[in-house]
Nucleic acid binder design. Structure first.
Lengths: 161, 161
DNA sequence: AAAATATGTCAACAAGGCTGACGTATTTTG
DNA sequence: CAAAATACGTCAGCCTTGTTGACATATTTT
């Protein structure tokens, strides 16, 4: 094995361990509520994209509608998420967080923000930008444009009535 | 939400998408063999740490021995992994990859190396070091020393007879 | 009016986690 | 040396979250 490849393997492992611990704080919180990681992902992306369509969510999460359906139903029944008909297209069921859902989303994202802030402390803004760029380029090339738009955030202040 | 927090949320999402795609290539290969991500993790860490003890593997993967047991048995039956009694402590069942296991490990790691190399191309070695450091600091503080040692690789050329 | 689209749902199944209980070598300890 | 601790394996049952396939309903597009 070349030295360069060895360095890459080290990065592979770092990413594995970083991700393992990165999801561990939310996992604990969720477990107490009887929820799992699947609920987290829905809460997160609905919170970040109020009014997101079901089909968009499916594409982001790369799961089937049947998988989504079960978990989404639980979140609706527990009053964390609600749906509204699309105005332009009434077949759509746009997704929003309730105040309760927003509260949970906040609780879940807080430790993750803290973890990144701690990880960044001591690094300059150039280091942060470098890391951001590398993470971005780990994403499939054909999906980067989508992700860039998603991350930029679209209807940040969507009116929910 | 503060601007700084928003930046952190963007990083959180980048990590999510990066990881999602990062594991997708191995997943495809594994699926054709009737294996899953659990098999991958075992193959990877046994390959990187020949002679690793079962209990060490459990700690790395953060799963129970019952979960490991099933998947490990499959890998042993399919002749990807074999066990040997520890010399010093004969209760131990040290784990090694067979040549077949090594071949699979290589096949699985290749696309991940390629992905990181592509992601790094264009970034300088300082950017790479910065990213490495940030990923490292995402790991739980009490586990960083362990991970550092693990990643450095210990018995790189362990004799297997 | 017919076809396509967006979504929901039922059913059956699989991977891969979990807990709890118990068994067997082997090593360590009092 | 006997007893306790350790390393590991295994049986059984359960949960979450993913899958495929088939079918239903409302709405929009053609």
């Amino acid at each position: 094995m070349q030295a360069r490849e060895k360095q890459m393997v080290e990065l592979i492992e770092l990413l594995f361990f970083a991700y393992r611990d990165f999801v561990s704080d939310p996992d604990e919180i969720l477990h107490e509520l009887g929820f799992g990681r699947a609920h987290h992902r829905i809460i997160h992306f609905v919170g970040r994209n109020p009014g997101i369509r079901v089909s968009e969510l499916l594409e982001i999460l790369r799961i089937t509608k049947q998988s989504l359906g079960r978990v989404l139903r639980e979140l609706i029944e527990s009053d964390h998420v609600f749906q509204r008909e699309g105005e332009a297209d009434r077949r759509q069921r746009l997704l929003f967080l309730t105040p309760k859902g927003e509260a949970l989303r906040n609780e879940l994202v807080r430790p993750q923000i803290a973890r990144f802030e701690e990880a960044m402390s001591g690094s300059g803004s150039d280091a942060e930008a470098a890391c951001r760029e590398i993470l971005f380029r780990l994403i499939n090339e054909d999906d980067r444009a989508n992700v860039r738009q998603l991350i930029a955030g679209r209807a940040e202040n969507a009116v929910i009535d």
